Amino acid sequence: MTLSYAVGIDIGGTKTAIGFVDDGGEVLAKTTLPTDRTVPPSAMVDRIAAAVKQLAADAGVAESAARGIGIGAPGPINTRLGQIVKPPNLPEWWGFPVVESLKRHYGHLPIFFENDATAAALAEKWLGAARDAEDFVYITISTGIGAGIYSGGRLITGATGNAGDVGHFVIDPAAGTCVCGQQGCWEWIASGTAIARQAGELLGRPVSSREVFELSFSGQDDRMKELVNQVFRYIGIGCVTLINTLDPELVVIGGGVSQVGAALFEAVTDYVATYALNPSGRNTPIVPAALRQDAGLIGAAALVHVTYR
C-alpha cells in the first residue's frame, strides 16, 4: 500500500488504541492493547511500538509510508516536555516522558502529543461536526469531563497543553469534594462516573449511568428522573460558562454521556437559550459529536495530518 498515513495512539486508563489513518480520515487498520499498569510505562511503550510494527505487517502497510505519530493522552500533560504529568486514572505514568520513550523506537518520525480532548476537537474540525466552524468548543462527557478549544481558526492549547481542563470548573460547591480537592467540580457532579456514583448512593446498590438514564426515561424511578434533570442542568451551566468566556459559534458535545441523545441536547439548548449572557450566545448551537467510533485514533492522527495540510 503506497498511501501515506499517520499513526494514531490514544492512551487511556484501561486500554490504548492504535491505528493507521490516511489523509482522508479513513482508519486503514487498528488494534487495542490493555493499558497494563502492573508494568513500567516504558515497557508499555515497548508494547505499543511492537503493536505498531505488527499492525503494519498484518495490514501490508509499509512503515516507511508513515508521515508521523500522533499521541493523545489524558491530562494533565506537558506538551513542551512531552510528558504525561498527573492524570488521576494513570498514577503509574505520572511524570513519564512518553514522547522521548517512543523516540527510542521511532526517532526518525515526527511525534505530536496533545491532551486527548484537544486531539478530539481537532478531529471534529477536520472531519466532524465542526468542519465549518472557526470558533468552537468540543466537550467530552464520559468518565470525566474535558474540552478542546478551537478559537480564531486554531487550537488553543495553553502553555503546557492543558487548556480546556474544564472538568474542574466549580459548579456547585455544596455538592461534595472532587478528587482534585475542590468542592463541587463539574466532573464530580455531571460526568458518567458522577451519575453512577450519585445514583448508587440513592439506590443503595451499584448502578451504571446507562441504567440511570433508562430508569429516568421509563418513568420507573422519580429519584433517577430528578437526578438526570439535575445533571442536564449542570451540563447547561458549564456550557453557559464556556459560551460566556469564549464566545464560540458552536458547542460540540461527545463522550459516552452524549449518546443519551436528544433529551440531553434539548435540555442544554434550553438552558443556554435562557441564561447565556450575550443574546447571540443564547442561540449557540449545541450539537453532538460526529466522530464516535475511533474518535481517539482519528484525533491523534489528526495531529499529524492537519499539521501537514
Rank of each mutant, 00 (worst) to 15 (best):
G146R: 01
L90I: 05
L250I: 04
G176I: 06
S4W: 01
S216N: 02
I71H: 00
D58A: 14
G146E: 05
P110I: 11
F96C: 05
W186F: 15
V251N: 09
S218Q: 10
T2A: 10
E114A: 15
Q230T: 15
H168V: 12
A65K: 11
K125H: 14
V7A: 05
I145N: 05
A117L: 10
L291R: 12
F20D: 05
V7G: 05
A130P: 05
P76W: 05
G254L: 08
L250E: 09
A199L: 04
G164Q: 14
D36Y: 13
T143D: 01
D222E: 15
L122A: 07
I235N: 10
P285G: 03
S218R: 11
A17D: 14
N244D: 15
G68C: 05
V7K: 00
P288T: 04
P173I: 07
G70W: 05
N244I: 11
G254Q: 01
A290D: 14
D222F: 06
F265H: 02
L28K: 13
V137Q: 07
F113A: 07
A301K: 04
G200Y: 11
L277Y: 13
K103W: 03
L203Y: 12
K86V: 00
V61K: 11
D46L: 01
A133R: 03
I9G: 09
I84F: 03
S216H: 02
V61N: 11
A267N: 10
A300C: 06
K225W: 04
A6V: 02
L202Y: 04
W93P: 06
A65H: 14
P279L: 08
V27A: 10
P91L: 08
T269I: 01
P34K: 12
A49E: 00
P74T: 06
E26I: 03
T193R: 09
P97A: 00
I139P: 01
A49H: 08
I11W: 00
A119Q: 01
V52N: 00
D36M: 02
C178P: 12
D22G: 09
T143E: 06
Q182W: 03
W93A: 10
H105G: 06
E249M: 01
V61L: 14
T14S: 15
T284N: 04
A301S: 12
G256T: 09
H105R: 08
P87I: 01
R67T: 05
E226M: 07
L127T: 07
L90S: 04
N244W: 07
G176R: 07
D23I: 00
D23H: 12
A302H: 10
G296H: 13
T143Q: 04
G70C: 07
A300K: 00
D270S: 13
A73H: 01
L250Q: 07
D10Q: 10
D22R: 11
T14Y: 12
A276M: 05
T118Y: 00
F112R: 09
A120I: 08
A120C: 11
A121F: 06
R197W: 00
V257N: 06
Q183W: 06
S42M: 04
A267Q: 10
E201G: 08
G161L: 07
